[in-house]
Amino acid sequence: MSERQTDARQGNKAAKRALTALMLFVLTGLFIYSASSEQSYLWLKALHVIAIISWMAGLLYLPRLFIYHFDAPKGSEQAQTFSVMERRLINVIMRPAMAVSWILGLYLAWSVYGFHGGWLHAKLAAVVCLTGANEYLGIASRSFARGAYPRSPSFWRAFNEIPTVLMIVIVILVIVKPF
């Protein structure tokens, strides 16, 4: 008989793998930092984009999980499975990816642009909004885990558009630099 993926032991294994990946990510970043400045910039930018993709994947997927969670009767095994999935997504993928995105993004903004440029300030404001959305999802996840199903499926469908719109704004600001 196979082990259930919702068992604490499986969660601990997943957390250890995520921590190992994060440590490798940090060590790679430090190695890259010690490389030539032009090469290190490109590698750090690549790592920044990888972290953003991971974070965005979670921001787009978690509201969908909430919608499916609504179909599970409170306290059921299915509801418990969704709670485990939501908690792991937030704690093992989204928050570490968000932290790496912020650290590398702030470093790149400082080292390349000196925190100057209207587009950069607008981008940072949009990233602050993404961070707020991330933390709101974390609060909602804890509510679902307690059996309190916050809001409605239609709310989560609409909420799912917030990270999408912010991502579009951020990409346009970074690529076009309109001001």
Score class of each variant (00 low, 15 high):
S2R: 12
S2A: 14
S2K: 15
R4S: 15
T6S: 15
Q10P: 00
Q10H: 10
N12A: 13
A18G: 10
L19Y: 00
L24W: 01
F25C: 01
V26M: 13
V26R: 11
T28D: 02
T28I: 02
L30P: 00
F31M: 12
F31I: 06
I32T: 12
I32C: 15
Y33A: 14
A35Q: 14
S36P: 02
S37Q: 12
E38L: 13
E38P: 05
E38G: 06
S40C: 13
W43R: 04
L44W: 10
L44G: 10
L44K: 09
H48V: 05
H48Y: 05
H48Q: 07
I52R: 10
W55M: 13
M56G: 02
G58L: 07
G58F: 10
P63C: 00
R64E: 05
L65Y: 07
L65E: 13
I67W: 04
Y68F: 08
H69T: 11
F70Q: 10
K74S: 10
K74I: 15
E77F: 04
Q78L: 13
Q78K: 14
A79Q: 09
Q80C: 01
T81Y: 03
F82M: 07
S83Y: 00
V84P: 00
E86H: 01
R88C: 08
L89I: 09
I90W: 06
I93D: 03
M94V: 07
M98I: 00
A99E: 05
V100A: 15
L104M: 04
L106Q: 12
L108A: 08
S111D: 10
V112G: 05
F115S: 06
F115H: 06
H116D: 14
H116V: 12
W119M: 06
L120G: 05
L120S: 04
A122Y: 08
A125F: 09
V128P: 02
C129A: 15
L130C: 12
L130F: 07
L130H: 11
T131E: 11
T131D: 12
G132I: 09
A133Y: 10
N134R: 08
E135Y: 11
E135M: 02
E135G: 00
E135D: 08
Y136K: 15
L137P: 03
G138P: 04
I139S: 06
S141T: 15
S141A: 15
A145D: 04
G147T: 07
G147Q: 11
R151L: 01
R151E: 10
F155P: 00
A158Y: 00
A158K: 12
A158E: 02
P163F: 10
P163Q: 11
V165S: 09
L166T: 08
L166Q: 14
V169E: 11
L173F: 03
L173K: 13
F179H: 07
F179S: 06
